[in-house]
């Protein structure tokens, strides 16, 4: 668990640990601290935690999604060795587009979803589902091969780890 947190933070993402019972409150405070007042937040239809003023995705167009500042989802698997979270876009995770267009992604990971390494993750994943493996915020190494965070995907990744 500590390795997962260390590796996620190494990508300049933020991790907040909390008890499962505090998840909704922590999500609220993360959004409140990270967004200007009045920012819109989209959530998948079946997110297990309440997000105050969250707009449930009902097939929003890409242009409509572009008006949202943040998205809150769960995950399927997390990989400690590489600091990766894996979405398979089922319950609590929503369509691929909703975790892509908004600039901030708050991803809630349960402790029991964290596996040691990449082979462990593959053993748990269904290839028929679409996957998005996320290791930190959007980044590029295309300018002089130095890593810079923040291109087209969410520029802020905040992982809420339920311990």
């Amino acid at each position: 668990m500590d390795l997962f947190v260390e590796r996620v933070e190494d990508y300049r993402a933020t991790v907040t640990r909390c008890a499962a019972t505090d998840a909704a409150a922590v999500i609220g405070s993360v959004l409140g601290a990270g967004l200007p007042a009045g920012s819109k937040v989209v959530v998948p239809p079946d997110l297990p935690w309440e997000v105050v003023d969250g707009v449930v995705d009902s097939g929003l167009s890409a242009t409509e999604l572009d008006c949202f500042a943040a998205v809150v989802t769960s995950a399927t698997v997390a990989i400690a060795e590489t600091g990766t979270i894996v979405l398979t876009h089922g319950a609590g995770q929503g369509r691929r587009a909703i975790t892509l267009v908004p600039d901030m992604h708050v991803c809630v990971v349960r402790a029991d979803q964290v596996v040691a390494d990449v082979p462990d993750a593959f053993a748990l994943l269904d290839p028929v589902r679409p996957h998005t493996w996320i290791s930190g915020p959007s980044a590029t190494s295309d300018i002089e091969l130095s890593r810079v965070e923040g291109v087209h995907g969410p520029r802020t990744l905040h992982v809420v780890l339920l311990t």
């Binding site: 600091g83 876009h89 691929r96 679409p130 996957h131 493996w133 996320i134 290791s135």
Partner: peptide
């Protein structure tokens, strides 16, 4: 699993690249 360990470390020198997408044909509604 072998290649997703070999490729990022060899390519950009990262433990894992920021995004990997997989898709299998058409996913209805997504």
């Amino acid at each position: 699993d072998v290649f997703l360990q070999l490729l990022p470390r060899s390519s950009t020198g990262e433990r894992m690249n920021p995004y990997t997408s997989t898709w299998t044909g058409v996913t209805p509604g997504d």
